[in-house]
Every structure is written in structure tokens, then in C-alpha cells.
Design a protein around this nucleic acid. Structure first.
Lengths: 237, 237
DNA sequence: CGCAAGATTGAAGTACGTCAATTCCAGTGG
DNA sequence: CCACTGGAATTGACGTACTTCAATCTTGCG
């Protein structure tokens, strides 16, 4: 069942049939969730770890001013919150962006896996370290890159991450975000996000068809964005 | 020997004498390192995990433009790079900021601890999750807060983190950074950092004596910065 | 005591934000 | 099939928080 997770962890270890069985048995409780619904809220201490099987979700915080800051995107194969096993409470919220299929894994099942299988434990830990690496790169982006490179860099990342779980077609992928949400991610206003997206399109670096982004020349976009994929720690490439 | 580490992990688990012995025996190789020297460079695959015993270090990346982005500060009790055990290579560099005493722990010793002691393993994992939580908060700060609150928020955090390892005196702590380095952290120019620091001082929110920051009224500074310490996941308060 | 790095200040430029209006488009009901 | 609707995208005008450049002042340190 959790093919995207297999595909993701497979970048780090060769999964055995036994590993697959263990993961499959843990992800029996699958639920469909509509777009833009909260999965966990800041302050929660949930009893489940959530695994995205289909669709996009995002981590976010709301500032006292009402401003929303989006901190990460979660796509198929991503675990939302293994933190929960160790930290007392969520320090941020998670919501779906598109309609999603999500596996609910009880904490006890996670603990069982961690005790039964050292290689899987390491693979799961590896996944959280990659999340951390992505956060570092976003911090660089938001703090030090101008708007156009900021967005270009983000699109490079999401193309490669989508590709790693088999969600791309000819260097195009589905981006289920409004421009306002993209702005809340990049630390930009919706208006400026719109203008910047227009520039990238005019420069021929990207093309947009509805909610689908196509990157005609990935080399050129990477060069423009000063994008180095090393922080994604992907096996292939 | 590694008192600050005891103190840090002690926030998460009660350390037994056995835990302490295990950690002490791993941290036998201690070296003094001068200020502003690199410990690990991006691309490295070091054989050692580094533990800060005294002084400050920082994670950073250099952009093609030469711009430096500082991504995290490491103070006594912080492990620099457990990543190394799992990720292929460093995706960022680490350098000292002040003179430091650093314990070099060989990878095999880390592995030994991880295999021998589940509780310590969880505590170490917990520490990396806190690092991740801090990164998320920095992303909020850099992306969505104005310069004055950005710096105020950072100072709140560093006071609490310093306090947790016993490095504060009357709500004051040593901040071994130049204003340029602080700017590279907050995504601000050195000039604007200077002016903003001046404003905070004029407002009576902080006082600066050389490289020492004093916070006369922590409640007031927290309120100004909209600082909520939940993301630090500290036990006490 | 002298020097270099860091801190401070002023003046001018710019990349971004805000406000507000208009256009586009997918979904809905008639 | 078309008119209606509300959210999202787009565009223009204008304001501002920040940057950059450059000069001067201060401080720590050999």
C-alpha cells in the first residue's frame, strides 16, 4: 500500500520484503481528507503519526498579526510528525492543500517498528534529517535570495522531490497552491509573487498551465536559481 | 566531563550514572580551537561527531555571490553533526565563533551508544528534533517578522538556550557575534542590524556591554518579539 | 601607542509591500 | 447552454523598510 514511502526510503536503504510487510501492516488505516483541512494543530499531542499517500499537505504557523507562515510541504511518502513520539506537543500545525489520502499510524505501531527493525529506524531518521536539510536551504532562500531566484529555487526543489516519488511527467508537476500560499511560503506578498511568477514565465524559465508547472530547461532554471540539489540527499542523479 | 550535554539531555530524560559513564567515555578526545576556524566544510564526510563543550560555533552556507547565510548557532551541549552517521556528506559548513573546547567523538563510538542504550538514543534524537523546531521558527522570523522583532526574537531564544546550559547571569549572556554575523543570520545588512540594535537599546528592551547582552525585562522583550518559547521544548520554564 | 576590525552615522537608491480596481475562470444553478 | 458567482490572478499607483555606498568614530589588542 504505502508505495510512495517505499520509494522514498528506498533512496536510503534497499527495502527487504520483510521491511515492506512491516510498513504495510502499519498503514492499514487510510482516510481520505478534503483540501484545506487541518490534520493537526499547534499544541496538539496526537496519538497518530500521519503518512501522506496522495496529495499535498503543509506545515504552518499563524503569527499574532494573522500572517501565515508556511514552513514545509509534505508530498506522498512523507511522514508528517514522527516528532510526536518524542516531543511533548506540536509546535506548528499541519493542513492539507489538495485532497489527500493519508495513513494514520498509531504511536504504538511506530514504536513497534523502531524496536523491531534497526535498518528501518535508521531510514526513518534519515528522512527527518533530510527534512532538516530542506529547512536549512529554505532559510538561506528566504533570508538571502531575491524574489525571482527564491521562487525558481523552490520550483527546482519541488520538481526533484516530486520526481523522486514518481509524480512528474516530462519535467512537469502538479503544484496545488494559490499564489497567496506560495507567497506565505517564500515570505512574499501575493502581489509580488504574481509579478515574479510572470517574470519567470516571460523569461521562458517556467510555463504554467492551470495548477501544473512545466520546466522546459531544468539546467537553465537551476543555473538561474543557483540551485544545488545536494541538500536533498537523493540517491540517484 | 561533558557537563553541558548532561544538562541538555537532562531536559528530556533523567540521566542514570550509567548514561553519564557512557557519554563521558565517548568524549575523551577534547581539543581547543581558536575563534573563527572551520570545523567541517560542506561536502565533507567526516569521521567524527563534534560536541561543543565551551564557546559558540555556527552552521553556515556561502552563496555564489559570496554572501554568507548563518543557519544555526551551536552552544555548549550541542552536537554539531550526528547527521554524519546517516547522510553521505555535509550540506553545509560549521565554524567556531569564539574560542571553543570541542569533544571529537568517533563515528564508531556514536554507533556503540546508539546500539547500547535506547534511552540515550531517544534523547539524542530528541535533540535533533529540537534543532529542527528551531529552524522552523527561524524561518518564520526571517520570512515574516520586521527587523526589530527579528533581532528581539533571536535574543529571547539565545537567552533561554544559554540559561538551559547554565550560561546566564541575571538574564544576561555572552553573544560572541559581530553585527555583520548577526545580520547574516537574520537576513539583514550589517548597517541595518546596527540601526535596529540601536533602536532596541533606546527602547530599553536590551542593553549591550561589549559582547554581553542584558535583558532587563524578559517579559517585555518577549511581548515585543511575539516570542513563544514552546518550540524550544524545554522542560523547565 | 598604533593599527585594524568593528561600530556608527548620513544620504540616496531599490525591491519589496499595500491598497484598490479589474479581469479571469471554474463551478453552480437555472 | 448560458448567466451568475466567488475565489484567484492580474495590473497600476504609491508608500516604505530595507540596502548600498561611503565616511567617521570607537575599541580591542599586539
Amino acid at each position: 500500500m504505502p508505495e510512495p514511502l517505499f520509494r522514498k526510503l528506498g533512496q536510503f536503504i534497499e527495502l527487504t520484503d520483510d521491511d515492506r510487510r512491516l510498513l504495510s501492516s502499519a498503514t492499514h488505516d487510510v482516510r481520505a481528507i478534503g483540501a484545506r483541512e487541518d490534520i493537526i494543530l499547534e499544541g496538539d499531542r496526537p496519538d497518530f503519526v500521519h503518512l501522506i499517500l496522495e496529495g499535498w499537505a503543509g506545515r504552518y504557523k499563524i503569527l499574532p498579526s494573522g500572517q501565515r507562515s508556511i514552513l514545509a510541504y509534505l508530498i506522498p511518502g512523507d511522514l508528517c510528525d514522527i516528532h510526536v513520539a518524542l516531543l511533548k506537543e506540536m509546535d506548528h500545525s499541519i493542513a492539507t492543500l489538495s485532497t489527500c489520502r493519508i495513513a494514520f499510524i498509531s504511536r504504538s505501531e511506530i514504536v513497534k517498528i523502531l524496536e523491531a527493525n534497526t535498518r528501518l529506524t535508521h531510514a526513518l531518521w534519515w528522512a527527518t534529517l533530510v527534512d532538516e536539510a530542506i529547512l536549512r536551504e529554505w532559510l538561506v532562500t528566504v533570508g538571502h535570495r531575491p524574489a525571482d531566484k527564491r521562487i525558481a529555487h523552490f520550483l527546482c526543489e519541488m520538481l526533484l522531490r516530486s520526481k523522486a516519488v514518481g509524480l512528474t511527467v516530462d519535467n512537469s508537476f502538479h503544484l496545488p497552491l494559490t499564489q497567496e500560499e506560495l507567497g506565505d511560503t517564500m515570505g512574499l506578498s501575493a502581489v509580488h509573487t504574481n509579478r515574479t511568477l510572470g517574470e519567470l514565465r516571460n523569461a521562458g524559465l517556467i510555463s504554467i498551465d492551470g495548477r501544473r508547472i512545466a520546466i522546459p530547461d531544468m539546467g537553465r532554471l537551476q543555473e538561474f536559481a543557483e540551485f544545488n540539489p545536494n541538500y536533498l540527499h537523493q540517491k540517484d542523479k
